[in-house]
C-alpha cells in the first residue's frame, strides 16, 4: 500500500493534528513502513473463518444500578480548564 503526503494530511486533519511540512514528510515514510510491515505480515494468514475478537474476557452484562450519586463540585470539574467563565468551559465561538 502506498501512502502519500495527501493521505497523511487527510488523516492529520481527521485527527486534528497540526503537522509541520517536515513532520508530514517524515510521517509519510514512517506510516508506509509501519502499515506495509504490519499488513503484509498479517495478510500471510488466512483468517476467512476466524471471528474478530474484541474482548479477551468472556464476560457480558456488567451494569450499575440506576442510582444517583453526588456529582463533583463544579470547581473540581473546572479546575484544570485552560479558559473558563460563568461556570462553563470556554471555546472559540462555534459557528453552526
Amino acid at each position: 500500500m502506498a501512502i502519500t503526503k495527501e493521505d497523511i494530511e487527510r488523516l492529520a486533519d481527521l485527527a486534528r493534528l497540526n503537522l509541520t511540512p517536515e513532520e508530514i514528510e517524515k510521517l509519510t515514510g514512517d506510516m508506509e513502513t509501519i502499515i506495509n510491515y504490519s499488513m503484509n505480515k498479517l495478510n500471510e494468514l488466512n483468517t476467512d473463518d476466524v471471528l474478530p475478537m474484541e474482548h479477551v474476557l468472556p464476560i457480558s452484562n456488567v451494569f450499575r444500578e440506576d442510582i444517583c450519586e453526588k456529582s463533583f463540585d463544579r470547581e473540581e470539574i473546572l479546575k484544570n480548564a485552560p479558559e473558563k467563565a460563568e461556570g462553563c468551559f470556554l471555546v472559540p465561538k462555534v459557528v453552526e
Binding site: R64, I67, C68, K70, S71, R74, I77, G87, C88
Partner: peptide, 24 residues
C-alpha cells in the same frame, strides 16, 4: 427517564447551574 446518567451516577435532572451535574 432514568434517575442517573448512562455511564455514571450523576443525575439526569433537567436544568441546574452549568456543570453541576458532572463528574470526571
Amino acid at each position: 427517564d432514568t434517575r442517573s446518567k448512562i455511564y455514571c451516577g450523576c443525575t439526569t435532572e433537567f436544568g441546574g447551574e452549568p456543570n453541576t451535574h458532572c463528574c470526571p
